[in-house]
Every structure is written in C-alpha cells, then in structure tokens.
Nucleic acid binder design. Sequence first.
RNA 1: GUGGGUGUAGUUCAAUGGCAGAGCACCGGAUUGUGGUUCCGGGCGUUGUGGGUUCAAGUCCCAUCUCCCACCCCA
Length: 426
Amino acid sequence: MNYKIPRGTYDILPKDSAKWQYVQRIFRETAASFGYEEICTPIFEMAELFERSSGESSDVVQKEMYRFQDQKGRDFALRPEGTAPVVRSFVENHLDLQGGRHKFYYIGPMFRYDRPQKGRYRQFYQYGIELIGSNHPFFDAEVISLEMQFLKALGLKKIRLEINSVGCAECSSDYDAALQDYYRPHLAELCPDCQKRYEKKPRRLLDCKVPSCKVLRQDAPSQLDYLDAPCRDHFAQVQSYLNDMQIDYKINPAIVRGLDYYTNTAFEIIVDDLGAQNSLAGGGRYNGLIAAIGGKDTPAIGFAGGFERLLLAMQNEGISTAEPLKPQIYIIGIGEAAQKVVIQLLSQLRNRGIYAEYNPDKSSFKAQIKAANAMGAAYAGIIGEDELSSGMISLKDLASGEQSTVDPSDLPNLLIESKNKESNNL
RNA sequence: GUGGGUGUAGUUCAAUGGCAGAGCACCGGAUUGUGGUUCCGGGCGUUGUGGGUUCAAGUCCCAUCUCCCACCCCA
C-alpha cells in the first residue's frame, strides 16, 4: 500500500455513512424546531482570527493549529473551532449593525494538531449553534435545552449536564487574582504543569488530576463567590429557567472553557464510559467576542459538540441508528435473451424510485437467488425462458416464499404498495 | 510535545530463531429454474517500512511510521 490517510483522520465508509446522516439529520431537525438556520463558512480563515478569538496563549493557537501560507504569503489556518468563523461572518455581513437576534447552526470538520486518542482526532466533525444578539438568561437556558433535546432525541441517557459561571471580564480577573493569592504560599507543592498554569491561566489549576493538586484545591476560593451582582443574578436566572424547562444539572465550579472568549454561563455535557475524552459538548456565553474581532459590542451564546464522541456514546448505549439499504426487488435473469428484458425492467423500476438490483456477474439461477437473499431483497423477480414467452414475470416474496405471476406493467405499483404497507407497520 | 502498548490473508487471530497457518467472510460447485442449513473445492501474504545480528528472522536488536490507551488539551 503506497498511500496512507493522514494521521488522526479517518474515512467514513458506506457502511457507516447512514449513521452520520442520521445524527446530522436529527441535529438539523432539532435546531430547526428552535428556529436555528444553517450557516456555512470556509474551512480555512486568516490565522489571526483564531489568535484574536481563542487567545494567543491558548493551546489551540499555540500548538494545535494547522497553519499555512498561500502563494501570496497570506497566513491562514484550518479552522480549529466553529465559533470564530461564524462571528467573523456575522460582523463581515454587518448583521451586528442590523440588530435583533440571530440564530445559527453549523456542521462540519474542524482541525487540530493533537495527539490522537479515543474520541480525539485531527480532523473531527462538530455541530454547534450560536445565538447572537441577546444577553437574556433565557437564551442561555434555551441553548442548553436545544443540546439536551438533541441528545434525548437520539436516545442517549447516560449524560450529565454541568454548569458554571465564569463571570464577566471584571469579576473573572478578580477571581484570577484571588486564586493566585490562595496558591502563592503553596506554589512549591504544585505539579510542574500547575506551576505554569499559575501564571498563565490560574483557573486551570482547578481541573488538574494530580492528587496533591486536588487536595490543595479543596480550600481554594470559588468563582461563584467572586461574581459581581449582575453576573450572580444572571446565573441565578439561568438556573431558574433550566428548572422551568425541567432540565437536570449540577453546578460545577471547576468547569473552565478552554477558549478565552467565554463570559458568564459555561456548561459541559459529560458522558460516562467514554474514556478520557468524555466531554460530549460544551459551550457558554461569549459576550465580549464580537467587539473583540471588530464588530459592534453584541452579546452571544453557543455550544459545540463532537460527532465522533456522540457516535461512541450511542454505541456504548446500544442505540442502533439506521438499517442497511436493502433492495425492494432483485431481478434474476436466466440466459442471454433475458438480459435485454431485465435491463428494461430495471430502468423502469428505478425511474419510479424503486431500489432494484441486478448483477450480470452471477449467471446461474442459484447464484442469483442466493445473492437476492443475502442482500435482504424483499422480492425476487424472475425472468427466464417461460417468462419471455408469456411476457409475464415470476415474482417471489423472499420472506414468505410465495411465488406469483405478474404483468410487468403492474410491477411498479405493486412494489410501491408493498413498501408503503411495510413502512406503515413499523 | 511526554509515557505505555501494538502491527501477520478482506477480518479475527495462530506460528519453542528452522517449510507462514486456522476460524469467519468471500467466490465456485453438489446432474439443466428456487434462497438462510450441510458437504466439497478455491490462499505465494512486499509478516507496517528501512536497516542490523545470524547458517537461518514474523520471532532478536536499532530506527521510523500507523493504530490503541493515558498525560496534556478539548468537542
């Protein structure tokens, strides 16, 4: 084998594509029921867009972006996440000046130069929504409920919703200072990673997995105690709306979104038994982002989820998604003379939208009916010498074994009728 | 970027340093046109790749790559 797929990427083969179509369809339907419409943005953008939005110090920008220059030396990056491009498009198309609320959803591949592992790839597919133009806490709850609704529609049960508030720019920097004050005397006891975090992003100290760091964290100040009055009120209202929507959640002060632009509400949906990468979706409010990339100051909230993890979780819960494609009829032709009639019939049926199969590679009657059975065809249509002379077709119901003789002109309607009957029974 | 594991037929896996094999899948057949069972037949694969040790390497050594798991990070 000469050519190999790039590391951390994968092909979606026909045997799996129905699953992908299914989850995407359910997501689109769910989004539509909340009034969200699709937005498609390019797969690459100016690298600077992501530096601005995610934060130059973030890992995503520092070491995970696929960056490249084009023939004119312009600095681009394959998009590592979906929010910045949507916001860029929002501003570029002057929707910020138009006012009002805007609801977007997107589906597509994202790229991050990570070390691949379970539930983590270098090209991975995300779905997400963005609601731009309101700071009302109702919409925080609505965005969360859309995601919960989607997961429920898929039949996932073993999921947990955790929420937090990271406050606005002011209270969040107050909190960082408080955390540093707390950790300063213990600096030497922290793991090397945490010592770096202390400087760069003190909040990251809260989700370190090293036992000694976990112990220290127990008495650390909580973000929630450092929220100013408006932020505290906002968070309380979000919870109240979630209660009204009968959505279960747990407050987890350790939830820290990785990207710099988050404010106030942050949430994450976690699935057990998924391995280390157990975060199925995450999101939050990002009131400062639109202004940060040059638009009119506009509040916004959204989330993103990963399809790979979704599919893993569904597999874990034994949720089956799609039936394999089965022919409605498999046409068996015997002898050279039959082939012409077979092909004409095949075309007629396909023109009527009926999935009909025929395989001239198999010549014997036995091989053909075996294939019909193996493919799960509902019927076998037989055309041999007898049928050629009578102008009729022998039609065999492969489930019951019953065989009848039908006029070729009646066949399409007959097949469509039986298909309808079958889907009504489901 | 760090650590551990891994790689043999389409697939799942065998093979004390000594002839690379089996199950499943796939294809064909079992007296001329009736399917899930059964029986019979069908396998030379750069043993991931490149070096090295050896009379002899799938097996030992080195390098490299993939995949898996974890750290990290995150969806």
